[in-house]
Design a protein around this nucleic acid. Structure first.
Length: 106
DNA sequence: AAAGTGACGCATT
DNA sequence: TAATGCGCCACTT
């Protein structure tokens, strides 16, 4: 049931300085609809959920970042050391992370 | 209770 | 190459 909750749990596990695409989270949890990831953190006020580390698969940021738009999101990421190739494209080569890493790291 | 809405991503046209 | 359609779930009204 609480897929949203599950999703947020995953998002919480994204390490500092890393980013994770919506689709990876969805796939990890067995969901076919990537949109639910965004919905799960839409208007999310929980500071424990680093929703700014969740991005689109091509590295671009969601335009409707709830806490101030993608520019704010970018600011947060840069602050964590995440590099950008373009104005709204994360350097996935360096900062890509996927939920599966939880398994290999523990 | 039913319908609308909402941070995506891929296949097809 | 760009635009459109589908997938499919929880929350709000």
């Amino acid at each position: 049931m609480n897929r949203f909750k599950k999703i947020r749990e995953i998002v919480k596990k994204i390490p500092l300085g890393k980013v994770c695409p919506y689709s990876e989270i969805a796939r990890f949890l067995g969901y076919k609809d990537n949109r639910i990831i965004g919905w799960a953190i839409y208007n999310n006020q929980d500071p424990l959920v680093p929703c700014h580390r969740v991005i689109k698969k091509d590295g671009s940021l969601a335009e409707k970042y709830s806490l101030g738009g993608w520019r704010e999101q970018k600011k947060r990421l840069v602050k964590e050391g995440v590099g950008f190739l373009d104005q709204n494209h994360v350097n996935l080569r360096r900062h890509f992370w996927r939920p599966g890493k939880i398994l290999s790291s523990s």
